[in-house]
Simulated assay, not measured.
Amino acid sequence: MTPYDAPLPQAPAAPALIDGFGRQVTYLRVSVTDRCDLRCVYCMAEHMTFLPKREVLTLEELDRIASAFVTLGVRKLRITGGEPLVRKGVMGLFENLSRHLRSGALDELTLTTNGTRLAEFAADLARLGVRRVNVSLDTLKPDLFRQLTRGGDLAKVIAGIDAAQGAGLSVKINAVALKDDNAAELPDLIAWAHGRGLEATLIEAMPLGEIEYDRTDQFLSLKAVRSHLESFWTLTETDHRTGGPARYVRVEETGGRLGFITPLTHNFCEACNRVRLTCTGTLHSCLGRDDASDLRAVIRAGADDAALKNAIRRAVDAKPKGHDFQIARAAAPAVSRHMSTTGG
């Protein structure tokens, strides 16, 4: 064997991303746009002011930052928005990021979507290595859907789910529990999802951003929802985890899996392994805090990859122990930014 035949030495693995409380960050949620084609009442103001293009990261910048996280040990990337599929050229970003799936550096590339454009993109997502998607859907009643989304068409979302399943994608339905709107419908929504072979996750309304109504009027504790479900279903605890905050049970009567995300009634911060990158390049290490690290400024100042990674490490090291969410009448939102700005 000549020296030229010898295997190349492996580059030493970068130290893991560990925050100041010993939690390893392995999950990055990447918002690609603050724009959305719906206006869900708990998520956005009716008349939103969207960001000017110059403030939004280019797709190449998003790829660079996300890829830096992958080299630092992030194993899961979730693309979010706003609505990610309204971003022009977003499939190019999926194509570029899919190289990390092929190399084995990344375990999963996925997205959260409202489903309105999923019919158009499902086949390409599957081709590029996406294996599952989350679809936000709070009701199966067309009129209520139109009301909650301020004009949305439920049929487009159902068609998107059909296309995703047809492309072989695993689909999970995310529903925000709303006391006055969909509380009575939640069992039917869960049963519908399980009947189609879909998972379902219920989410407590979170106090993010100023909107037109008082969230205390709509807040519904998932502890109460679970108690109601257990009056007619058998819910069996499971150890299933997807890298996010949901805790899962199996509904024995439907045979399906049901998740609960409970930031208000049960703090899940002790095992938090994720951070969020907004479409402007701001890194939030906690959804429920106004902490922020400006990675856009770092890369647009000409920083090399080493400087970018150092900035990421500093931001992760400052990750707080827990969030500031609370639901109380007249209380200001925990953070001023909207969920659509932060990233799904």
Rank of each mutant, 00 (worst) to 15 (best):
Asp217Lys: 11
Thr201Trp: 11
Ala224Met: 01
Ser170His: 13
Asp214Thr: 09
Glu185Ser: 08
Ala205Met: 14
Asp214Pro: 04
Leu198Tyr: 02
Pro187Phe: 03
Glu204Trp: 00
Ser227Ile: 07
Val176Ala: 06
Glu212Asp: 14
Ile203Tyr: 03
Phe219Lys: 04
Glu230Met: 09
Arg215Asp: 00
Leu220Cys: 00
Glu199Arg: 13
Leu178His: 00
Gly160Glu: 05
Asp181Pro: 01
Ala184Met: 07
Arg196Met: 07
Leu198Val: 11
Ala184Lys: 12
Ser170Ile: 13
Ile161His: 05
Leu186Cys: 05
Asp181Ile: 13
Gly168Trp: 07
Thr201Ile: 11
Ala184Ile: 02
Thr201Arg: 15
Glu210Thr: 12
Leu229Tyr: 02
Leu169Cys: 02
Ile158Asp: 07
Leu178Cys: 12
Glu230Leu: 08
Arg215His: 02
Glu185Gln: 12
Arg196Pro: 03
Thr216Ile: 08
Ala183Met: 13
Asp162Tyr: 02
Ile161Asn: 01
Gly168Cys: 14
Leu222Cys: 13
Gln165Phe: 04
Leu220Asp: 01
Leu198Phe: 14
Pro187Leu: 11
Leu169Glu: 01
Val225Arg: 02
Lys223Ala: 09
Ala183Lys: 10
Arg226Ala: 12
Ala200Tyr: 11
Thr216Glu: 14
Leu220Gly: 04
Ser227Ala: 15
Val225Phe: 01
Glu230Asp: 09
